[in-house]
Write a protein that binds this DNA or RNA. Structure first.
Length: 875
RNA sequence: GCCCAGAUGGCGGAAUGGUAGACGCGCUGGUUUCAGGUACCAGUGCCGCAAGGCGUGGAGGUUCGAGUCCUCUUCUGGGCACCA
């Protein structure tokens, strides 16, 4: 018996596709276009199973739309700037570019094994001078259009990587790459003014109907619109220029519960007081740690009483102390608050610690006013009784009370309603080498001067070393010393480079004209944009997608994209992770007392307390073996602890290498299995048994097709039953692909295989069925599909064949089997012609022996006949 | 604390309010094979010899009929948050 040989067939068909130029995207005004894009990879050097899953999904979508007659754009590139290249450069003494381009070459070779329908002619890396040069041009246009600004900001400073970190790059108060504790520093930085677009970016989310609801919600929360009251306290005893203290509150209904005012350590007033050494010492203390709310949350609340007082707006005789407190963020609102400890837990904690009064504004309905043990924050449904009412009070708490309080403040003239957003401007400056240089100069005479466009790209130098910390651009002997483009005087280049999120915020637009002499070509962009289907990990739900949405708008404004592309991704799909079991063992260290290891059932492994020193080891799946005894290490037979599947990670060694899988089973097996076992949005567990089963199935399909291809038989007309199975599968696979339910599409293909296998139709009818199956399989397992197509007499390449249409007549059944329920329980069934009248069905049902038996003489109260579905007898 | 998503056989998962468990894995029996593997056939929610009964985290409800809709609840996963 011959077996299917992927190793021989897959390269053959890949070469055939290449020779036919099938995947080169061509702008064809006569055809509808379809732009499918997967989030491009960082060139780490190896592809992983997550890539395989991501790109296979995109490939199914791309191949399907090509077969449906669309002009498809399905490009691939490299998100190639970033810290790992610099780390590698520092460790190995290679230039980041050399390391990056070698990785790209390696990964491209691995990816090509997968048989993806990618247009490689459009490939670029963001570290190509051609790409980042256009990015610099884009930056200059945005600068001219007022979309970029330079301002001082408190930033997270990573003292090891010597760079600014975004809040989200700070994990547990430490840099996400270096692990070093983060400090807060004030630097002058370049910013994209994304916060000007808060309202637009928020409201436009409503139109993104083909985005996951979850992602839209996460973006909405991130933008964080709130309605509140802004007002100014009159100060008493404050330094010159601080007669008033502006505060913002979303809870103006609790204004009568004020007990203190507090300002951020970064507030101008705090700075004005830093002449006092005690204040300076406190502020230094409060600034320890990162700027993220999460970081600040875990820090203990500390405060310093400035001695300044403010007058309550509703009662000038009522004075509140002004504290500097570490939990107030300068970036949100005005950097100053009034504290209402009775109805805000963190204010309560603060007031308790510093023995400040805690006056309640309201209590739960029916409750007496008592000393509070914690802040009283009523639930939405809870009714309250006001104990310190004012005009506008007396209604429910919540939005109504807030609106009433704002109206009251506006009527009395002490404040006004203000809408604030949480979203902050996007700081793009990075003090790193391996990024796109920010194309501006600092001239002693002219100040900040944009580089001239004809001088772009501002290239990174080749002669750099990484043997000392900081930014190599900054201490390069010559790079930054240039003449001012405006006056010709000696000037210095900006040595900051751009955040790598900038690179990935417009690459999708560049793919439409990857070698244009301007950032985009409007003709190409007009044809291809927007991206019809974007696919990637949910980890990019906020930043990358929000930045891209901002950039697309900025590019419309600067004339680099047509207005219709302002929302760059029409549909988004976020795929689940690839997981694998983890195999671990404990190595007992010398002199340690012995004790058993245990597994807690939740993914954690613990060594029994008090048993001494162990070193935990992880083992690669390829090094372990399943035995009757459980999972053991192949080399030693040592029994291993198996931890339930988790995301593949190098540190846990629960990884499988796609290249090895392709070598063992072929690309089609990897592709099929990645899509077959779980819905695409959920995690999928990679298992060796599942991969083997997939390979067996694909081999079976090939063998059945091979048999059909080789059998001689009468030229029977197409077998009706088999044709019906093909029609059903066509309907189901089509629906599964358009509905992003690839697992169901694969189930339909299994069902069709079984149907063909069991069918007694002649070989000719079977060959017809197999050609149809090849077409349906082609998006999932394109190589095997070509093989089956060719064996069974398909003309040309199946990859170039149109998608099969369903003949609706074939899906119509002549007779239907109706289940019969008696009082809602299934008791019998009746097979009737499809169109039988309900009255006739009723007669048949009542005559049914089983029905009579279960009725046992009871009268029938009601008889429900749902045509074509079910019959329910109510007795 | 708030928001979101889930909970279905031994496992992954199917199921426009209409036969719960498609399809796959695993398992059982059989055929082929010297054997292992492969391949093929049959079976496989639970209890029960059977008739039948019970079954979609739990408790109620709506309905002729609920995995699906409503209320409450438990648990799991994810997101957000000293956001004023």
């Amino acid at each position: 018996m011959t077996r299917y040989d992927p190793a021989a067939n897959e390269p053959k068909w890949q070469a055939a596709w290449d020779a036919a130029g099938l995947f080169a995207a061509k702008a064809d005004p006569g055809r509808p276009k379809y732009y499918v894009l997967e989030m491009f990879p960082y060139p780490s050097g190896r592809i992983h199973m997550g890539h395989v899953r991501n790109y296979t999904m995109g490939d199914v979508i791309a191949r399907f739309h090509a077969a449906k007659g669309f002009s498809v754009l399905h490009p691939m590139g490299w998100d190639a700037f970033g810290l790992p290249a610099e780390n590698a450069a520092a460790e190995r003494g290679v230039h980041p570019a050399a390391w990056t381009y070698q990785n790209i070459a390696d990964m491209r070779a691995q990816m090509k094994l997968l048989g993806l329908s990618l247009d490689w002619s459009r490939e670029f890396a963001t570290c190509d001078p051609e790409y980042y040069g256009q990015q610099q041009a884009l930056f200059l246009d945005m600068l001219a259009a007022g979309l970029v600004t330079r301002k001082a900001a408190v930033v997270n400073w990573d003292p090891v990587d010597m760079t600014v970190l975004a809040n989200e790059q700070v994990i547990d108060g430490k840099g996400w790459r270096s692990g070093a504790p983060v400090e807060r520093r004030e630097l002058t930085q370049w910013f994209f003014k994304i916060s000007d677009w808060s309202e637009e970016l928020l409201s436009a989310l409503d139109g993104l109907e083909d985005w996951p609801e979850k992602v839209r919600l996460m973006q909405a929360n991130w933008i964080g619109k709130s309605r509140g009251l802004q007002f100014a306290f009159e100060t008493v005893g404050a330094p010159q220029g601080f007669d008033r203290l502006e505060v913002y509150t979303t809870r103006p209904d609790t204004l009568l519960g004020a007990s203190f005012a507090a300002i951020s350590p970064d507030h101008p007033l705090a700075k004005a007081l830093e002449g006092d050494p005690k204040v300076a010492a406190f502020v230094a203390d409060a600034r320890r740690g990162g700027t993220s709310a999460e970081e600040i949350e875990t820090a203990e609340k500390i405060g310093y009483d400035t001695g300044i007082r403010v007058k309550h707006p509703l009662d000038p005789t009522w004075e509140l102390p002004v504290w500097i407190a570490n939990f107030i963020l300068m970036d949100y609102g005005t950097g100053a608050i009034f504290g209402c400890p009775a109805h805000d837990q963190r204010d309560f904690d603060f007031a308790t610690k510093y023995r400040l009064p805690i006056p309640p504004v309201f209590v739960a309905e029916g409750a007496a006013e008592a000393v509070l043990a914690e802040a009283f924050v009523p639930m939405k449904s809870e009714r309250v009784r006001f104990v310190r009412g004012f005009a506008g009070a007396g209604v429910q708490t919540g939005d109504e009370a807030v609106s009433a309080a704002i109206a009251h403040a506006e009527a009395q003239g002490y404040g006004k309603g203000v809408t604030k957003f949480r979203l902050r401007d996007w700081g793009l400056s990075r003090q790193r080498f391996w990024g796109a240089p920010i194309p501006v100069l600092h001239c002693p005479a002219c100040g900040v001067v944009p580089e001239r466009k004809e001088n772009l790209p501002v290239r990174l130098p080749d002669d750099v070393t990484f043997d000392r910390p900081g930014n190599p651009l900054d201490w390069h002997p010559t790079w930054k010393h240039v003449a001012c483009p405006a006056c010709g005087a000696a000037a210095k280049r900006e040595t900051d480079t751009m955040d790598t999120f900038v690179d990935s915020s417009w690459y999708f637009a560049r793919f439409t004209a990857p070698h244009a002499g301007t950032p985009t070509d409007m003709g190409a962009a007009d044809y291809w944009m927007t991206v019809d289907q974007y696919i990637g990990g949910v980890e990019h739900a906020i930043l990358h997608l929000l930045y891209s949405r901002f950039f697309a708008r900025a590019m419309v404004k600067t004339g680099h994209l047509p207005a219709k592309a302002a929302e760059p991704f029409a549909a988004l799909f976020t795929q689940g992770m690839v997981t694998h079991e983890i195999y671990t063992s404990f190595e007992e260290l010398a002199l340690a007392p012995s004790g058993p290891t245990t597994y807690d059932g939740k993914g954690g492994v613990t060594v029994r307390p008090g048993t001494g020193n162990y070193r935990q080891r992880y083992h690669f799946p390829e090094d372990v073996e399943q035995t009757e005894n459980g999972v053991v290490l192949r080399s030693t037979g040592e029994k291993l602890i198996v931890i339930p599947p988790a995301k593949m990670s190098k540190s846990k060694k629960n990884v499988v290498d796609p290249q090895a899988i392709v070598a063992q089973f072929g690309a089609d097996t990897a592709r099929w299995f990645m899509l077959s076992d779980s819905p695409p949005e959920r995690d999928v567990e990679w298992t060796a048994s599942g991969a083997e089963a997939t390979a067996k199935h694909l081999s079976r399909v090939w063998r059945l097709a091979d048999e059909a291809a080789k059998s001689e038989g009468p030229a029977t007309p197409a077998d009706g039953a088999l044709a019906r199975e093909v029609a059903k599968a066509t309907r189901d696979v089509t629906a599964a692909i358009t509905g992003f339910a690839f697992n169901k599409g694969i189930a339909a293909l299994y069902a069709l295989t079984n149907a063909v296998s069991r069918s007694d139709a002649g070989p000719q009818a079977k060959r017809t069925a197999f050609r149809a199956m090849a077409q349906l399989m082609a998006p999932f397992v394109p190589h095997l599909a070509e093989e089956v197509w060719a064996m069974c007499g398909g003309k040309g390449l199946v990859a170039a064949a149109p998608w099969p249409e369903v003949d609706p007549a074939l899906l119509v059944e002549d007779v239907v089997t109706l289940p019969i329920q008696i009082n809602g329980k299934r008791r019998s069934e009746v097979t009737v012609p499809k169109d039988m009248a309900a009255a006739e069905v009723e007669r048949l049902v009542l005559a049914d022996e089983t029905v009579q038996k279960f009725l046992a003489g009871q009268p029938v109260k009601k008889l429900i006949v749902v045509p074509g579905r079910i019959v329910n007898v109510v007795a």
